[in-house]
Amino acid sequence: MTNERRVLVHPDRAALAASVAARFITTTVDILHEQGEINVVLAGGSVATEVLEAINASAARDTIDWDLVNFWWGDERWVAKNDPERNELQARTALLDHIAVPAANVHPFAASDEGTDLDSAAADYAARLEAASIDGTALPRFDITFLGVGPDGHVASLFPHQPGIRESDASVLAVRDSPKPPAERLSLSRPALNSSRCIWMVLAGPDKASALGLALAGASRDEVPVAGIKGRRYTNFFVDREAAAEVPENLTASTF
């Protein structure tokens, strides 16, 4: 089985979002033809939201049979359901509220105002993941996992030098010491993320160049968490020219 890391460089942020959106639509159609269902893990952040907006704006959007698509999240801020900082709300506004996806196919984390606590919310999401498994594991068959990358190299809510990046057993983590506010969050663990068939990391801007360069140069996952993330078949870094500034040329493929 192939297990490749590829860096695909785009001229600017707008071209990046449009290209990833187009690739998502064609890849999703192909996977649905192959296996009849797909599990997609969504990310938060401005670039990820722009990709979802571009999917929504595409004339090819409804070539996807949305009845067969399941949406999960890689992490979530522990805020109220309607807080604008919530990843779920951003994804619904950008795409999910505009497509014919059944409500039962959308699997958000619990919110802070829904009558539960952080630990119970983590346990509940882990149970929901296990219930969606088709092979007796603790997870569904994740097909495409979107991830952003922070300037410090964090992915989902797995931060440098924090215990979350070293977790090897749990599928879902209750995070209480995030160095990026809010301090409390929910996150899939590194093994859960790495169970995905394909990981698509989408990042833009000069502040991401150092983390990407270090990750591809072999930095430790404790120092640069993104270095420890790798899909079962493919790990694609979709970046703009500024984010690729410190990536060796032999690792990149230009889209322009």
Rank of each mutant, 00 (worst) to 15 (best):
G36M: 06
S112H: 00
P151T: 09
E167Y: 07
P108E: 00
E34C: 13
A243P: 00
E37L: 14
R166E: 15
A54T: 12
A127V: 00
P151W: 10
V79F: 01
S254E: 14
S171W: 11
R185F: 09
E130M: 07
A243I: 04
V172A: 01
S157Q: 09
R128I: 08
E4T: 15
A104C: 05
T2A: 13
S168N: 14
L173R: 00
N87L: 07
E53W: 08
T27L: 11
R141T: 15
R23H: 14
V9T: 07
S58K: 01
I99H: 05
P225Y: 12
G164K: 05
P151Q: 06
D143M: 06
S157G: 06
V172Q: 00
S157T: 08
R5D: 12
V224S: 13
F109P: 04
L251V: 00
D143T: 11
T26L: 11
I55T: 03
I144G: 07
L188C: 13
A209V: 05
A57V: 10
F146D: 01
D240W: 05
E76C: 01
R13Y: 14
N236P: 15
W72Y: 10
L216C: 05
L95M: 05
G136K: 03
A21V: 04
A43M: 11
T28W: 04
V41I: 11
A183C: 03
N105L: 02
T93V: 11
T26P: 11
T255F: 14
V20G: 06
R92D: 07
N236Q: 15
P140W: 00
P182Y: 00
E242G: 13
V47A: 04
T26C: 09
A43W: 12
